[in-house]
Amino acid sequence: MTADTVGIVIVSHSPKVAEGAADMVRAMVGDGVRVACCGGNPAGGLGTDAARILAAIEEVWSPQGVAVLVDLGGAEMNAEMAIEMLDEGRGAQVRVCNAPIVEGAVVAATEASAGSSLDAVCAAAEELCQ
């Protein structure tokens, strides 16, 4: 695992979905990629939380950037909020991918593990929607 690959963050309303998607990434792509996930609201229910997303981004932070995969509407809003909360203008190196969460995470991680740029990682995941 190296800091020079793009990090992957998976954000779902459900912790089980987020953890399951992260498990799939680790099983298929291996340890050569940095992946973090979060799901659920602070009360333990379904939902997303900007602070948790921020912590997940910090966990896999890389100077190469971080690609974020989200599920439904609120996840994207909170992910964008977390990106704005990043200090030192690092938000410019974090992108929410427009891709399905599970497939997108596997594809983005595969691309990231090859040492590709954040642009290439997001483009690969977004190719799923074309």
């Binding site: 099983a27 593990s113 090859a114």
Partner: peptide, 14 residues
């Protein structure tokens, strides 16, 4: 299938 496709792609990218 999915896992072999990942392996093949990762190798190709090297």
């Amino acid at each position: 299938h999915a896992r072999p496709a990942v392996k093949l792609t990762k190798l190709a990218k090297t």
